[in-house]
Design a protein around this nucleic acid. Structure first.
Lengths: 212, 212, 212, 212
DNA sequence: GATGAATGAGGGTTCATTCAT
DNA sequence: TATGAATGAACCCTCATTCAT
C-alpha cells in the first residue's frame, strides 16, 4: 500500500473526475451528460465533484480548458522544428491528426461546440482556440507572402483537417454500433490512422498550393 | 377568413410542429431540446405532438429524415446537368453550400450526429446519408477512373466541404454572441456566402486533382 | 360518484395544495417546510404543485396572500357595525381573536415573518398587512381625536393583541408536546378561548384609554 | 503579538462559534441556518464546530441556553431594587426592553420558538424561560393580592411587552429592506428606543391596574 | 486542537409522457 | 382533432456529518 500525502490524494481525485468528465462530455454532450454518471465513472461521490470543482457548467469549462490548452501546447511545441511554410503546414496537419488520434475525446467536444455556435464556451477556452488558429493563420500568411499558398481562411483549413479526421474516426465507430447500416459505410472506413492523415495532408497541401 | 378542410388543418399543424422541432433540435441538440419549447414555438399543446407524431425520439427521427431526404433530393436533381467529373464535383460542392445556406438547421444537426457517432440515427436516415455520400463516391470514382482525381475517401471530401462551410457560418454567429472574444475571430469571419463557397471549391478541386 | 367539470377538478386540486401548504408552512416555517411533505399531504404529485403554482417561493407567497387577504376582509366586514372608537377597538380585538382562533395557521406564519424581519414578504402581502393595520390606525386616531385614547402606535397594539393570543395558544400545544416541562407552564395555559379574548380586550382597552 | 494559553485559544474559538451561531440562528431560524455559514462567519473550519460542540441541534440548544440564561440573570439582578409591585412591573418592562435592545438576536429566536410551539426547546432552556416568566408571575400575583392589579396571565403580559418591542424594531428593518413598501409602514416606525419602551410601559401598567 | 477531503441522504425542480375529456 | 391536468422518474445541487491526518 503506497502512502499518499493529502496533496497527492487531492490531485488524484481531481484527475479522476476530470478524466471521467472529459469522456462523458465527449460521449453525451453537455446537455446529455449526467453528473451521476461522471461521478460513478470517476469512482467518487457526486458531492465530491461539487466540493472540488463546482457545478456542471464549471466542470465543463474546466474540461474544455484542459483539453484545448493541452492541444495548443502540443502543437506550438512541435511547430518550432519546421522551417518553410509548406513544412510547417505539414507539421500542423500531422500534429492535429496525432492530437485527435491520441485524445479521442477532443473532437466530439469541438464539433458539438461548433454546432451550437460555441454558446457555452468560456473566455479562457476561446483564448486557447485563438492560440491554435493563430498559429495556422501565421503559417498561411507566411506561405502566401512567399507566393507559395493561395489566400485561404485558416478556419476553413483547420476544419478541413480536424473535421475530416474526426468524421472518419467516427464512421468507424458507427460501423460497430450499426452493423445493419448500408454496406456502403463500411467501404468508407479507413482503419489505418496513418493512411488517413496522409490523405488529408495530401489534399490540403495541394489544395492551398499556388498553381504554377 | 380562409376556410380550411380538416385535412389541411391537420397538415398545417404537423408542418408547424416539424418546423419548430427542426429549429430547436438544431439549436439545442437532441438531449438539450425540450418538448415544451418545441410545442410552444409551434403554438400547439404538448400532447398534440404525441398525438400526431409520437415520442421525442420519433419526432427527432422524423425531423432528421425530412432534413436529409430533402438535401439528398436537391443534390441529385442538380447533379444531372453536369457532364464531366470535375464539373460534377463542382456542382456537388456548390449544392452543398447552397443547401447549408438555405437550410441553416441542417449543419448543426449533422455535426452533432457525427460527434455522437450517429448514436441516434435511425435506419431511414442512414439511407439518406448513404444516398448523398454515394453520389459523391460515384463522382470521385469516375474522376479517378479517368485519371483526373487522386483516390480520395468521399467522407473526407464531404466533411471538408460541409464542415468548413458550417464552421465559418458558425464563427459569424459566435462574433455576435461574444463581442468580447479575441479580435482574432473577427478577422476570420467571411460574410459573403459566395466567397466562402468559392474558397472551398477552389481548395477541394485543386486538392483532389491529379498533378500533371 | 359525483361528476366534476375540469374547472372544478382544477379548483379542488388547487385548494388541496394550498390547504396542505398553509398547514405545513405554519408548522415548519418556510425553510423547514418540505415540498414533498406538502405534496403528500395534499395527495398530489410533487410536480402538480409546480404545474399549478410554481416554485416553493411562489407557493409561499400565494399562501401568505390567501391568509392575509382573508383576514383583512373578515375584519373590514365586521368593522362597519361598530359606532364609537371604543366599540370599534373592541370589535377589532374580538375579530382578531376570532380570526386567530378559527385559522390557527395564521399566527405562526405571522410570527415567523416578524422574526425574520419580513424578509420573504412579497408586495401583495405587504399591502394586505397595511390594510389591516390601517384600519386599526384609523380607530386609534379617531379615538385620540375625540379625547378618548392616548396616542398609541397601532403596531404596538396590534402585536399586543395578536401576539398574546397566539402565544397562549402555543403554550397550550407546548403542554401536550412536553409533558415533562416545568409544571409552571401548565398553570399558564388558558384553555377557554373566550376567557383569553376577554383578558386581552380588558387590558388593551384600559391601557389605551385616557385617564380622567 | 499577544501570547495565548491553549485554554484561552480554545475559549476564544468557542466564543466565536457561539457568537456566529447566535447571529445566524436569529437571522435564519434553525431550519434555515447553515452550518457552513456559521463556520465561515466564525472563521473556523466546519469540523471544528463538531469537535467543540456537536451537531447542529446541540449547537442550537447551547445558543438558546446562553441567550436565555443571560436574559434571566439580567432581569433577576435588576428586580431587587424595586419595592412595590407597580415599581417592580415597571422594572420588568424596562429591563425587557433593554435586554431586547442590547441583544437583538434574542427576540427573533424567541418568536420562532413560540411559532413552532417550542418544538426544539430543550429542557434546560424551558427552565430558563420558566424562571423569567416566574418572576413576572410573582409580581402580578403580589399586585393582585394587594388589590392593585387585575388577575392577568403573565404570558399575556410578557408577550405584550416583548412582542410589541421586537415587532416595532423589526418594522424599522423592513423599512430599509423594502423601500417600496406602502408608505404607511414608515409612519409606524418608532426610531427612539426610549419612546418605544415608554409607550409599552404606559399601556401595560394602565392596562393591568385595577380601576378605582 | 483543528482541518481538508469526502460522502449519504435528501431537497427543489424539470421533463417526457399519459390520459380523460 | 386537440388539450389541460397530472405524474414518475430523474436530474442537479446542497447540507449535515464523519474521518484521516
Amino acid at each position: 500500500m503506497e502512502t499518499q500525502t493529502l496533496q497527492e490524494k487531492r490531485e488524484e481525485t481531481l484527475r479522476r473526475i476530470l478524466e471521467a468528465a472529459t469522456e462523458i462530455f465527449a460521449e453525451d454532450g453537455f446537455a446529455g451528460a449526467r453528473v451521476d454518471k461522471i461521478a460513478s465513472r470517476a469512482r467518487v461521490n457526486k458531492a465530491t465533484i461539487y466540493y472540488h470543482i463546482g457545478d456542471k457548467e464549471a466542470l465543463y469549462a474546466r474540461v474544455l480548458h484542459d483539453v484545448f490548452s493541452g492541444a495548443a501546447r502540443r502543437i506550438s511545441e512541435n511547430m518550432h522544428q519546421a522551417q518553410d511554410p509548406v513544412e510547417k503546414l505539414r507539421t500542423y496537419v500531422r500534429n492535429m491528426a496525432q492530437t485527435v488520434g491520441r485524445h479521442p475525446h477532443v473532437p466530439p467536444i469541438i464539433m458539438r461546440e461548433l454546432a451550437s455556435g460555441a454558446r457555452n464556451i468560456p473566455e479562457v477556452v476561446a483564448n486557447d482556440l485563438a492560440r491554435i488558429l493563430g498559429m495556422l493563420d501565421e503559417i498561411l500568411r507566411e506561405g502566401a507572402a512567399q507566393g507559395l499558398f493561395i489566400e485561404a481562411n485558416p478556419l476553413i483549413i483547420h476544419i478541413m483537417v480536424v473535421g475530416s479526421i474526426i468524421s472518419v474516426k467516427n464512421i468507424n465507430s458507427i460501423k460497430t454500433r450499426h452493423p445493419d447500416f448500408p454496406e456502403f459505410f463500411k467501404r468508407m472506413a479507413i482503419d489505418d490512422a496513418g493512411d488517413l492523415a496522409e490523405q488529408v495532408e495530401r489534399i490540403i497541401l495541394t489544395g492551398v498550393k499556388k498553381q504554377g
